[in-house]
């Protein structure tokens, strides 16, 4: 019992509690994950477009992108963007006479790294969803003399989104968990905040289990949100025969 009281004092919102920093860190985790999700969708749309295009160059570029990003550890990609990025900026700065190491913003690096990685998965999700659109609908749209942009907006985008939502939900869960890796470049998200708290208090088990629980809460709630979105997107589709 005493143990529990001590635990809740430690992670609570009292004067000696870590509740506020932990909540702020959880907000940061969600924020950086959302930003990465956005970046991932942009990369995914371009990747999907390249994979479906008739150009051999675009196709192979997209194939290299998805193969490499799905075959290399995420930590390596984050390091590459962080250290490689500051190496590049350092090289540019040296030509202007500046010296020293240039640290990059952890949020931007994390958002880009996780975004680029998740884009490789998003590419496959979107490609699968696009291919699931019944061909007849595209033909019908063309016969109804829709232009390419109008067809994209009215037929392709909504239908692709509908079929892509379950896969996108999986990518979102992946991003949430990967966001913990951004702690290595100094962003104060859940992982890093718990590490700082452990450094200050020494209560390693209490804080890491709290961090894990915070992640579980976020993944559970967002999973439920995605299921609701799926139900919304699929409204009126019950019993429809897929071609």
């Amino acid at each position: 019992m005493d143990g529990l009281v001590a635990y809740f004092t430690l992670i609570g919102f009292g004067p000696t509690g870590w509740g506020v920093p932990l909540l702020r860190a959880a907000t940061m985790t969600v924020a950086v994950s959302l930003a990465a999700f956005g970046v991932g969708i942009v990369f995914g749309v371009f990747g999907c477009w390249a994979k479906l295009s008739k150009s051999v160059v675009a196709q192979s570029a997209a194939a290299v992108y998805t193969t490499v990003l799905r075959g290399v550890p995420d930590l390596l990609v984050i390091y590459l963007l962080y250290f490689g990025g500051s190496q590049a900026i350092g090289a540019i700065a040296r030509t202007f006479g500046h010296q020293g190491f240039f640290g990059l913003n952890g949020f931007v690096v994390g958002m880009m790294a996780v975004g680029i990685i998740s884009g490789a998965y998003q590419t496959e999700v979107l490609r699968g969803a696009y291919l699931a659109i019944p061909k007849g609908e595209l033909e019908a749209a063309r016969v109804a003399s829709m232009g390419r942009l109008l067809m994209l907006r009215r037929i392709i985008a909504p239908q692709t989104l509908r079929f892509a939502l379950p896969g996108m939900g999986n990518v979102w869960q992946l991003i949430l968990k990967e966001s913990a890796l951004i702690s290595v470049v100094g962003l104060i998200e859940i992982m890093n905040q718990t590490r700082l708290a452990v450094g200050r208090t020494g209560a390693a088990f209490s804080f890491y289990i709290t961090g894990a629980i915070l992640f579980l809460v976020i993944t559970t709630f967002s999973g439920a949100a995605f299921r609701r979105a799926e139900a919304w997107a699929m409204r009126g589709m019950a019993g429809r025969v897929r071609q």
Partner: peptide, 23 residues
């Protein structure tokens, strides 16, 4: 399955490496 798939591996590693010593 829910607990291990829903939280990041990094936090699980830290929980075992640093956390178990607390118990």
């Amino acid at each position: 399955v829910f607990a291990l798939r829903g939280s990041p591996l990094l936090i699980q590693i830290f929980l075992i490496y640093y956390g178990f010593g607390q118990i």
